[in-house]
Simulated scan of single mutants.
Amino acid sequence: MIMSPLEGPGPDICLASGFFPREKLMTLTGESQSRKILDTRNASLFKSSKTYYYAGFTQGEIQTCEMDGKTQTKNKMEEKVTNPLPVVPVSSVQMPCPINSSGLLLRGNGNPKANTISLLFTGLRVLLAKCVGVNVLLTVKALLV
């Protein structure tokens, strides 16, 4: 798959996904038919499928990307959507739990400060329980000696 930057200048990227074994060669062909051959020895392993992923890039645009006899060509035409999906306003979507921008579930009606205070009090309760437990054990030991 060849990906280009959405805005501004930047290199194109060729993403090879789901291949095995790790040692392969990726060939990138640029606008002036210049070829660049990349080694995929440092590809990342996707543990659940036990396959590798590799992102190859070069300065400028990539016209074709080839690996294992499979070739991907960059489409210059804009895609035309024949049956667009209906746009649902965000305000009408019901969220089951309040979620902040980092994706964490919030407590206290979605208030980050209330979430922090709740975490602090839980930590203090655990600390108090440990202190009481140690004091009880030391008292029992002192009485038995």
Rank of each mutant, 00 (worst) to 15 (best):
M3V: 15
S4N: 05
P5I: 03
E7W: 14
G8K: 01
P9G: 12
D12T: 01
I13A: 15
C14L: 01
C14M: 00
L15E: 10
S17D: 15
S17T: 10
G18Q: 02
P21M: 07
R22Y: 04
E23S: 04
E23M: 09
K24E: 06
K24H: 03
T27R: 01
L28A: 03
L28E: 00
T29R: 06
E31F: 14
E31H: 10
S32F: 11
S32I: 10
Q33I: 10
S34M: 03
K36C: 12
K36S: 14
K36Q: 06
L38N: 05
L38P: 15
D39C: 06
T40L: 04
N42W: 14
N42T: 02
A43I: 08
K47F: 02
S49G: 12
S49T: 05
S49W: 07
T51D: 11
Y52I: 02
Y53L: 15
Y53I: 15
A55M: 12
A55I: 06
A55V: 03
G56H: 04
Q59W: 01
G60T: 08
E61R: 13
E61A: 10
I62Q: 00
I62S: 02
T64P: 10
C65V: 01
E66W: 00
E66I: 00
M67Q: 02
D68C: 13
K70H: 05
T71S: 02
Q72N: 10
Q72F: 11
K74F: 00
N75F: 03
N75M: 02
E78C: 05
E78R: 13
E79L: 15
N83K: 06
P84I: 01
L85H: 14
P86C: 10
P86H: 00
V87M: 11
P89E: 14
P89I: 04
S91Q: 05
S92V: 09
S92C: 02
S92I: 02
V93N: 08
Q94D: 01
Q94A: 04
P96D: 07
C97V: 08
P98Q: 07
P98I: 07
N100L: 15
S101W: 05
S101T: 14
S101H: 12
S102Y: 14
S102N: 09
G103A: 11
G103Q: 02
L104Y: 11
L105V: 13
R107C: 04
R107T: 14
N109P: 08
N109A: 15
G110W: 03
N111G: 00
P112C: 01
A114I: 14
N115G: 04
N115H: 04
T116F: 06
I117S: 06
S118M: 02
S118T: 09
L119A: 12
L120A: 04
F121I: 14
R125H: 01
R125M: 12
V126Y: 07
V126R: 12
L128Q: 15
A129K: 13
A129E: 08
A129Y: 11
K130I: 05
K130A: 12
C131R: 04
V132N: 03
G133K: 04
V136G: 13
L137W: 11
L137P: 01
L137K: 14
V140D: 06
V140Y: 15
V140P: 03
V140G: 14
K141T: 05
A142Q: 15
A142I: 02
L143D: 00
L143F: 02
L144D: 09
L144H: 07
L144K: 04
V145A: 12
